[in-house]
Amino acid sequence: MKRRPNYPAGAGSLVWLFLVGLPLYVMLGATVQSRSDYAQNGPLSFPDHFTLDNYTGAFGEGFGRYLLNTVIVTACVIAIVLLLVPPLAFAIVRSRSRLTSGVFRLFLLGLAIPAQAVIVPMFYLISKAGLYDNLIGVILPTAAFCLPISALILSGTMRDISPELFEAMAIDGAQPRQIFFRLVLPLSKGGLSTIVVFSALQAWNGFLFPLVLTQSESTKLITLGLYNFQTEHGINIPGLLAAVVLSMMPVLLVYLFARRALVQGLMGVGGK
């Protein structure tokens, strides 16, 4: 049978491409214009003179320090998640006790608690612990809110591992620790990549915890550092958008390299 072209689908694709491409064009075009040219020509104009002063000026506003702080927070959150979640997910999948099942259900209650609902007691606890205006005070609550969904994703991935593989290793005399390191972790790369990307996004884009739990310039993260482009005389839109582009590049690169494993990990949520 001869296939006829689907014109409505093609038209819809063009509309979707326009809706997605226009904001990207406006953002990237503004970053290579001077502030005066942007104010004079408008956001939709094509740059007459290309300049990279907005990108270099972002580092002059302290972007490098904010970037380093954000990298530290993100790396520590990922480390905490990778240290705690895989053994927890393995215990959830392999244990048949009611205690483990109850703990898992209690653990998942964290999915129903928004950060906004506990920010006041969180501020009190962090202050009493002497961690206010410290990166550790941002790392710990951020990692805590990443744990429930990460455990759910990774336990779903581990449930997809064939039970016959566990039985074969147990017959060969393998201990639970050996099964965990030699079987479960290598076959859970998709789920591990998923929780790494998810935790990195939560830490990198976090705003509420850095806003409430930090104060000084030395502990600012990228999400708060963007406020430096807003002054009493107006907003430096080209400089702000250049900082936004710089801030999203690391996460975009992580996603590009881990997208296949990320999709596979999300497909395994919930188990068979």
Rank of each mutant, 00 (worst) to 15 (best):
E167C: 09
V196D: 00
R177G: 08
M169G: 09
Q178E: 12
L165R: 15
K189N: 07
E164S: 15
A170P: 00
V196W: 01
F180K: 07
I171E: 13
F166T: 07
L187F: 14
P163A: 09
I179E: 05
V184A: 05
F180T: 07
S188G: 09
I171A: 15
R182A: 13
A170H: 10
F181G: 07
R182C: 10
P163T: 05
F166R: 03
F166G: 08
R177N: 11
Q175R: 14
I171H: 09
I171R: 13
Q178Y: 04
G173A: 04
P163L: 10
P163C: 07
F180G: 05
A174F: 02
F166Y: 13
E167H: 13
R177A: 13
A174P: 01
L185Q: 06
A174D: 13
R182W: 10
D172M: 07
G190L: 03
V184H: 02
I179A: 04
S188D: 05
P186V: 05
L185K: 04
R177H: 11
Q175P: 00
D172P: 00
Q175W: 05
K189D: 01
L187D: 12
F181V: 08
P176L: 01
G173V: 06
M169A: 11
R177M: 13
A170W: 05
L183M: 06
A168R: 12
A170F: 04
L185S: 07
T194K: 02
S188W: 01
G190S: 09
L192E: 13
R177E: 09
M169I: 04
P186Q: 10
